[in-house]
Design a protein around this nucleic acid. Sequence first.
DNA 1: AACGAAGACTTGTTTGGAAG
DNA 2: CTTCCAAACAAGTCTTCGTT
Length: 367
Amino acid sequence: MTDETQIPLEVNFDLPQRAEEAAKGAFGVESRARLLNQYFEQNGPVSAENAWLHAYRLLLWIDRRIGLAHCYESDKCQPGRPWYLRSLRFHDWVTQGLGATPDTLQQQIDWLFNQAIQSLTAASETILSQNLGKAAAQRRPFEGRSFPEPGEDPELVDIIVNTLGDFLREPLPADVRRKVSERVTTHLANENKRKNLLGEGFEDTLAQILRRIPAVAQTHEILVRKWLHEIPGFRPARKTMKDRQVDLALVRADGHRILVTAKWSVRSDREEQFRADFADYADLESYGQDFDYVLVTNEFDAARLVRACDNRAQNAPLFSRVVHLNPAGPVVAYGTDARGQVPEMRNRIESKRLISLEAWLTDLMRA
DNA sequence: AACGAAGACTTGTTTGGAAG
DNA sequence: CTTCCAAACAAGTCTTCGTT
């Protein structure tokens, strides 16, 4: 059960040869594995203490609308609204943790997404030039009727031109207008892709962290996105049931199983999912032995965190552990605020019901 | 082998209402 | 006015599966 055997070796770590392949799987499992390996080779060892910093370097991003590290829904983060102050506090705190300055934090974080976007951009430019001939043929029947060029957004360019006003010496040539429009549109469109990387990217990041802490890797088998029945001691789903994939699972040397659900953030509809998943897990358990069900998250909302802690299945807490990348983050963000569920959240942290990634990893290392 | 449609799945955003 | 809750929507990617 060494570290080496747990890294998926079937994955091809070479750079894809053709541009289309690169574009196709830019966020896919192979790209992520390659990038994560690259990151951890360059950025040194992982420990229980620095794991949360690695996770933030890899996955945390700047909310461009406010220029601050993202910790809550963007509409509630707008200047003047409560979460703007909290975002400022979080930004300050995470900046210190990462040894950056408030204005250079951006360069320290969001590594995974930046890398993926870079290869995507390179690939799509190649594809674009490859398709130029085809596109010309497709446009031929419409020639001479001044159809808009692809990638052209006149309104957008007008906004830019009008804003620049007198600073612009001369009118922009058509090809420059198109280039500007294309670049900006792509930039904005890219932001929408982040969520696609964040979901499985978070799972992979956690798996890598677990595998790169020797004391954890030596005593646990670490499984990522396996079907439930692939995990020791669980039966295949019955015909009428849906097959369930488990985000992350740890099987301790003594056979004890820890099923992990990794959610960067939590929403009410996903809470239902927790309960449904667990009901199936419990139903299909075949060893007649207890297993742990752990939530790992970066949610910042006090009410949602408290609810995750208090969620019950039958007669016991739903989650054996509720793990936050670093609960100090939400605590700092809320400051002295005592409204709503904030005091309750502090209680859960105080009572070790809501624990840090560091504490969880330390615990696993002792197993 | 390549292609394409359909479906699964992720997280973030928007909207609206109720409660405190 | 803020907080909390719920639901629908958005915007992608990846996988699967049938067809060509």
